Structure formats: C-alpha cells, structure tokens
Amino acid sequence: MPLTAARVWPGAGIALADGHYLVRWPLVAVLAGVPCFLVGVALGATHPGEVYSYSVLVIAVFGLIGQFGAAFGLWATTGYAFGDLVLHVPATVYVAEEERLRVVVLPMLLSYGVLALFTVVAPLTVLGVRMMVLGATWLPRPAVRWVECAAAVLTAGLAAYTWARTAPMLLRPIFVWSGSVPTVDAVAPLQQRAWLLVVVVGATAAARVLLDRWALTGRAATFSQILWAGLGVEVAKGPRSGALGLVLVLVGAIGATFLLAGLISGYVQATAVFLFFVSLLAVRRLLLVRAPQAVAVLMKVPFLIRLAAGVWVGYLVGKVVISYFWTRTETFLPVLASACAAIAVITLLTLPPPGNPYRELPRPRSRHGV
C-alpha cells in the first residue's frame, strides 16, 4: 500500500510506511491499525467540549500514538473523526439543517486537519530529521546513534510546542463560524500545559528510536531497506506532471487555505491566500523541474541548517509584518501574512534533494547496530 500511494503522492506513501518496524511481528503489523482506530473513535465520542483542545490528556494520547508511526497517527485521527462526527453530541446539535454544513461539518473537518498536523506531519518531520542524521557522512559512526536520538527528541518536542501554540488560532472556526467566540476552557489547556505534550511526545520519540533499532533486524531490516529504496525511487521522480501534478497543486493550496481559515476574514482574503499557495507550489515545482542544478547547490547546505535558517528568517519576516500591521487592523491579517511568509521561506529552503534521498541510508547490521 505505501508504494502504491507513493506513485500518486510520495508523501502519502512515506506516511503509510512509517511504523513498518512492526513487520518483525507480522500479525501485529496487520492488526496494529485497528486498536489505533478504536482509540480514536473512543476519544472522538467522549471528549469534553466541542473539540479535543478542551483536554490536553486527549491530545497527549494522540501525540503518543503518532510518534510510534505516522500511519498509526493517521488511523487514530480517522477514528477520532468518525467518533466525533457520528457518535459525539456537539453543543450545536440544534443548528438549522441548511446551516449545518457551514457551522458544524466544515469546522469539524478543519479540526481533524489540524489534529493530523500533530499526529501525522509532526512524526514525519521527526522521521525526516532522523534520516538526515543517519545519512550524515560527516558524523562519526559511533556518535550517530546518540545524535539521532537527541535530534528526534528535540524535533518532536519543538513540533509539539509549536503545534500547541498555533492550534488554538487554527481551531477558531469551531466557534466563530457559529457566531460564538473561543472559550477559555478550549484555549487554556494548550496554553498552560504545552509542556506536558512536549514531555510525552519527546519521550515517545526517544522510545521510537530504540524500538526501531531493536525491531529492524534480520528480515525486518532487509524489508525496511527495500521499502525505503522503493519509496526513494518515487520521490526521485520529482513533482508529478500533467493533470495529476495540477490536481496535487490545487489540492495542496486548498488544504493550506482551509487550515488557515481561522485567521482569514472574508472571501477576498481566502482567495488571496489560495492564490498565494498556488503560486508557492508552482514555484517549488518549477525549481525542482527546471532548475535542478540550483537545487543541488542548495542541498550542499545540511538540511538542519537550512531548516533552522528558514525558521529564523520566517520569524524575522513575521515580526516585521506583525509590527507593521498590528495597529492598522483589528483582524488576524498580521498573523496570517506572517504565517504565509514563514511557510514560503521554509518551503523554498527545504526543497527535497534531487535523486533518491534514501539510497545511502546505512543498513542495520545487527540487533545492536545503528
């Protein structure tokens, strides 16, 4: 399934493959998605308030599941969506039927996308950093195992903290699209207990590194290398061409605009944001297809340095934008503009390398190997 999905969208294939260390126990690997889905259903049906942000413990469970594999996080998020949509009784149950799509369903779908940033995208970010460490030829091999674990913990903790700080703004449509305002109970848990998510997710990321080393031996290690090689071939093909490439650009732009809906005021801003992301994804595609030499030069700079530079530049740009607009508007336009600028900088500085990015990953040599 991961390789099939990767032929359409490499990112989807990588997400579905994350957690394949369970192939060491074939029956567990086949059934692992079921309990993750059921946990998601239970949390979706029983969580307090209108959305999961009312309980940091609920979110911590999702973070724990996701760090053991993005595929498991996807199963849990899908289960939560089912439980929340079908079994949970929201406070807005008496909304008029003609308003239900706009006031209830679309904001709930948005909340699942925000949750997926934590359960799927964050684990994939940790996985990407780990692979960069494993492929770093400049690191002494005895140091790789320690650097990999430290990098996983730091990346997971930073991702959890960032998500906890941004999620309340992204979840605003749950309330404002129905004419209310976010309650203190919906915002305070993430603002006051973000440290709990950092600890849980960081510890789980470290446990995941150790679990990978223990499980990926023998036939499981061989399977892992073959799987990553196959995924690398799909990544090496670059952006999809023709109608599929256009569809992926449009879907990506629509998804990004939808996730930022909590910061958008009106259809004019929504259209502007959508066109911005279409342009950004088009430029990214153009660089990868038409300027591979320039991308190759950029790739000579280590990924972690490029990522740090992107975050720093994005922060500076955002600070300037917010300072300029803050007293000129009462909307979230300053935050929206700074978020778009930061996303653009990070996207262009972290382009994927040309060729197969997984071809040089070290093969686990033994149960106690790196």
Rank of each mutant, 00 (worst) to 15 (best):
V201W: 07
G202Q: 06
V133K: 04
D84P: 03
L64Q: 05
V200P: 00
S180A: 13
L43G: 02
T331N: 05
K300F: 03
G135S: 13
Q225E: 14
V200W: 04
V320C: 07
Y94I: 03
V233A: 14
V23K: 01
R285S: 06
A206M: 13
S366G: 15
V176S: 12
V201Y: 06
A236H: 05
P357K: 14
L336E: 02
A207I: 11
G355K: 02
L298Y: 00
P2K: 01
W138E: 13
R213M: 14
T347H: 08
F62G: 10
V233N: 01
W9A: 15
R285V: 00
P302T: 13
F72S: 08
L259Q: 00
R213N: 14
A6N: 06
P90G: 04
V181M: 08
Y94A: 14
A151S: 12
L263D: 06
G318V: 09
F175H: 10
V95C: 04
F325I: 03
I322H: 05
G230V: 11
P10A: 10
T350Y: 05
V297R: 10
A206V: 12
S55H: 07
R172H: 10
V30P: 00
V8H: 06
V311N: 00
F175S: 12
S224H: 14
A339G: 05
A143E: 08
V105I: 15
A291M: 02
A167E: 07
L158H: 01
V34P: 00
P189S: 04
V209D: 02
Y80E: 04
A91H: 10
L349F: 14
